[in-house]
C-alpha cells in the first residue's frame, strides 16, 4: 500500500481535487437528499411518511404521470425527427453545409430562451394560433370548409395533454441538433462496404434501412436514448417557463415544495423518487432492450 502511494504520489495529487470536489459537492448532497426524504420533519425520525404523503397528493401524482408522459412522448418524437434528419444529412447534396448550420441553430439558443420563444408561439394569441387561423380563413375562402366555421384560439397552456405536447415540442426543438449529431456520427461510422454489398444484392432502401442501418446504429441509439431519457425525466426549465403551476413535473414539484412551502424533506423525497425512476429506466433499458450491446 505504502509502495503504491510512493510510486503514484504525483498522480494521486493531481486527481485529488476533482475527486474531493465530486465527493463533497455531488455524492454527499445526493446522499443527504435521500436521507432527507426518509426523515419526518416533525419528529426527526426515520419513516416512510413523506412518501405516503406524496403519493396521497393529487398534484404529485399528476407531476409523476406528467413526467412519465413527457419522457416517453419526448423520446419517441426526438428519436424519430433526429433519425430522419441524420439520414438526410448523411446524403450528399448541394447546400448541405448551409442546411446543417441552420439545423444546428437551437444549440446556440439557451434552453430558457427556447422556452420563451415557444411561449410566444403557443400563446393563446400567439403565432401558432394565428397561423391556424389564417389557414382556416384561406380554406374558407376557397370553400373547403363552411364559411360559418369560426376558429377558436387554442389555449395550449391550459393543462392536460396539450400542455404536455407543448413542453415536449419545446424540448424537441432545443435538443434535435444534439440527437441528430449523435445519430449522424453513428451513421458515418458504418462502413460503406456494407451498403455496397447490400446494393449488389439488390436490397431496397427500406430493406437496407431495416436490416443494416438500424442494427448497426444500435450503439448510437442506445447512448442517445439514455442521455435524452435522463434529461427528460429531470426536465425543469421548460415546464417552469411554459406551463407554470397547472402542469407540474417531479422536478418543479420538488423545487416548489422547498422554495414556496419550505418542506425540504418532502422535496428530498420527490427528488429521490426522480433518482429512482432514472436508475430503473437506465438499467431496464440496458438489460432488456439494449442487452448490453450498445455500451459494451
Amino acid at each position: 500500500m505504502k509502495k503504491f502511494f510512493q510510486k503514484y504520489h504525483l498522480e494521486i495529487l493531481l486527481i485529488l481535487p476533482l475527486t474531493l470536489y465530486i465527493m463533497y459537492f455531488t455524492l454527499l448532497p445526493v446522499l443527504t437528499t435521500i436521507n432527507l426524504g426518509f426523515i419526518n420533519a416533525d419528529t426527526n425520525v426515520f419513516s416512510l411518511e413523506n412518501y405516503e404523503y406524496l403519493f396521497g397528493r393529487d398534484d404529485f401524482r399528476k407531476a409523476f404521470s406528467n413526467t412519465v408522459i413527457i419522457s416517453i412522448l419526448g423520446l419517441i418524437m426526438q428519436l424519430t425527427v433526429g433519425l430522419i434528419l441524420a439520414l438526410i444529412l448523411k446524403k450528399t447534396f448541394k447546400g448541405k453545409g448551409f442546411f446543417r448550420a441552420l439545423i444546428l441553430t437551437p444549440m446556440g439558443v439557451p434552453t430558457i430562451v427556447s422556452g420563451v420563444a415557444l411561449l410566444y408561439i403557443f400563446d393563446t394569441q400567439g403565432y401558432l394560433n394565428e397561423l391556424i387561423y389564417r389557414v382556416t380563413e384561406g380554406l374558407k375562402y376557397i370553400g373547403i370548409i363552411a364559411s360559418s366555421y369560426k376558429f377558436i384560439p387554442i389555449d395550449w397552456a391550459s393543462g392536460g395533454i396539450r400542455t404536455l405536447f407543448m413542453i415536449v415540442f419545446a424540448d424537441m426543438w432545443k435538443v434535435t441538433p444534439i440527437v441528430t449529431l449523435l445519430l449522424l456520427a453513428g451513421l458515418e461510422s458504418i462502413s460503406l462496404q456494407v451498403y455496397e454489398a447490400s446494393q449488389i444484392d439488390g436490397a431496397s432502401k427500406w430493406q437496407t434501412f431495416k436490416n443494416i442501418t438500424l442494427p448497426l446504429l444500435k450503439p448510437s441509439i442506445t447512448m442517445t436514448v439514455i442521455i435524452r431519457a435522463v434529461d427528460l425525466f429531470r426536465i425543469f426549465e421548460l415546464p417552469m417557463i411554459l406551463a407554470g403551476k397547472n402542469t407540474p413535473v417531479i422536478a418543479t414539484f420538488a423545487f416548489e415544495e422547498y422554495r414556496l412551502y419550505n418542506n425540504p424533506n418532502i422535496s428530498g423525497a420527490a427528488a429521490t423518487i426522480l433518482l429512482v425512476i432514472i436508475m430503473i429506466f437506465v438499467s431496464l433499458y440496458l438489460k432488456y432492450i439494449d442487452k448490453g450491446e450498445g455500451l459494451a
Binding site: 430522419i84 439558443v109 420563444a117 431496397s204 432502401k205 427500406w206
Partner: peptide, 30 residues
C-alpha cells in the same frame, strides 16, 4: 420496385426545408 426509395429521393429536400423553417421561426419571432 423500390417505391420507398423513390419517395425518399423526392421528399428528403422539401422535408429538410420544413425542418429548417421550424428551427428558425422561433428565433425569428423572439
Amino acid at each position: 420496385k423500390d417505391r420507398f426509395g423513390k419517395i425518399i429521393d423526392k421528399s428528403y429536400f422539401p422535408l429538410l426545408v420544413v425542418f429548417a423553417l421550424v428551427t428558425l421561426i422561433p428565433v425569428y419571432i423572439l
